[in-house]
């Protein structure tokens, strides 16, 4: 039997069992058990695949350092950071698990390693990602303005208008001395922003979700029927 035919049979069988397990697991417990087993296998294989992908990434950067290509400094930082995080992560794995052991071993190098491991994510990775995400707001607004300049259409005008309303709507003004007659003017952007979120934006998002759900379902069924074969075979 050709290997692509075998892949197809395995894929269709596993898909059918997992799908049947999701709907009929309450009636046929063996289907629910099989679904759990296959899902666990998938998780393990995904972990191994991640390891392979990371090793390939490190290999690429080591090659770049060896050949002194452009970006050697970044590659060196990446390889060094990877080695550091993996080392402290592995050392931290051996740290004491019970509270008593942890109290007894304040100077335990394994506990220090574990703290360094979590600290790397908490104080470096997460902070840098948060900083980059905050910067994105500026890029988005400037991209919107460029879009309006390049392509002055109704859509681009509405995008900029909505962005301004959204930003103004987020501003919380505290003006106790303002006459009551002018108060609706101050709260208008907030009310408008809420209405935009609750009515047109929600309607559009639901429309996109509906389309995406149907498209995803079609793709899933195509894989189930063997029309799409991302696992190989023609």
């Amino acid at each position: 039997m050709r290997s692509d035919r075998l892949s197809l049979i395995i894929a269709i069988t596993v898909c059918t069992v997992v799908l049947a397990g999701a709907f009929l697991g309450g009636f046929v417990p063996v289907l629910a058990d099989l679904k759990a087993v296959f899902t666990r296998w998938a998780a393990i294989l995904a972990g191994v695949a991640l390891l392979v992908a990371v090793l390939n990434l490190i290999k690429t950067h080591i090659q770049r350092i060896m050949k002194s290509e452009k970006g050697t400094v970044q590659s060196t930082i990446l390889v060094f950071s990877f080695t550091f995080v993996v080392t402290v992560g592995l050392l931290g794995w051996f740290s004491p698990t019970t509270a008593q052991q942890a109290t007894d071993a304040v100077t335990n190098p394994f506990i220090t390693a574990q703290k360094a491991f979590t600290g790397t994510f908490q104080y470096l990775q997460l902070q840098i990602e948060a900083w980059l995400s905050a910067l994105l707001a500026i890029f988005l607004l400037s991209a919107g303005l460029r879009w309006l300049r390049k392509n002055p259409s109704l859509a681009s005008f509405l995008f900029i208008l909505a962005s301004i309303v959204f930003l103004l709507g987020l501003v919380q003004l505290n003006l106790p001395d303002l006459p009551a007659a002018l108060m609706p003017l101050v709260t208008l952007p907030t009310v408008l922003r809420q209405w935009l979120m609750d009515v047109p934006v929600l309607a559009a998002v639901r429309g996109i979700w509906l389309g995406l759900a149907l498209a995803s379902l079609t793709l899933g069924v195509r894989v189930l029927l063997g029309v799409d074969r991302p696992y190989g075979g023609d």
């Binding site: 695949a49 991640l50 392979v52 992908a53 390939n56 991302p230």
Partner: peptide, 14 residues
Amino acid sequence: DGVSALLAQSVLHQ
């Protein structure tokens, strides 16, 4: 994603 990386390699080979 690790699995996607392996599958993409397989798609290119195919």
